[in-house]
Nucleic acid binder design. Structure first.
Lengths: 125, 125
DNA sequence: TCATTGCGAAACCATTTGGTTTCATAAACA
DNA sequence: TGTTTATGAAACCAAATGGTTTCGCAATGA
């Protein structure tokens, strides 16, 4: 047993926009590497390496079928993220009204890469 | 507008364990750099650079007080994380919760993720 | 059998990251 | 005034990251 500490954790795995896009892509479908790579502006090998990282973080499952390796989402590790995040929920619960307005104004980004300057700084002090 | 795209986004900012620890530390307290750095096994300068990255991601606020620079948590950008994560909740949620959310959201809308109403407390507390 | 397809491993490269030490400067204090 | 304190900027470094191209090999198919 004694599962060796994985080299890549969930936080690191989702830090890269390509890998976030991969997770979305594999959320419902099971796809082989080459098909996956057609969705990205980089080599198949590069995509394959991203898939490896996701695999090390436990975020995707691979299955060999003939000469193909098919990948699909394995969402369980994301629960750790959710737990981490839950600590901070109390903070925006307080500001719920402000955030609600923000979201309803349509500022939410849907690209998955999510532009940073997301929420304007209200000088709260 | 025209605000130059910040170099660091939330996903990248929280990828580093030191920075996650910083967020926790500053969650309730407002602290100056030197005091903060006492909590970490690295130089003050190194901590300062982490704080800069968090600042660029909008996750901390700095305030100059005399010769000190005091930092505190600015949790709003974490909401973006929650939004991203919400897409995957259906995978680990039980069917009842999923149905509940579906009903509460009225339906899948623009982001395909969540509207303000889905800000809900989770059992994690 | 032989060519093709799907894939990972390896070697390589440029850039980023996370750390260091040193230095300059502004604020506080004796 | 002169000294100490708090901090950021700069220069530097090793390692990690994200990409490439080349190669080998197993599975498929003509």
């Amino acid at each position: 047993m004694a599962a060796a500490a994985p080299k890549h954790d969930v936080f690191q795995a989702i830090a890269d926009p390509t890998r976030r896009k991969l997770l979305r892509l594999l959320a419902d479908k099971e796809l082989p590497v080459t098909a996956i790579s057609h969705n990205f502006p980089m080599s198949r090998t590069a995509v394959s390496k991203h898939l490896q990282i996701l695999s090390e973080a436990g975020l995707v499952q691979k299955r060999k079928v003939g000469r193909e390796t098919r990948y699909t989402l394995q969402p369980d590790p994301l629960f750790e993220l959710k737990q981490w995040l839950s600590y901070y929920e109390r903070f925006w619960d307080n500001k719920l009204t402000a955030l609600k307005r923000f979201v309803e104004e349509g500022n939410a980004d849907e690209t998955g890469s999510l532009g940073p300057r997301s929420i304007e700084r209200h000088s709260t002090e």
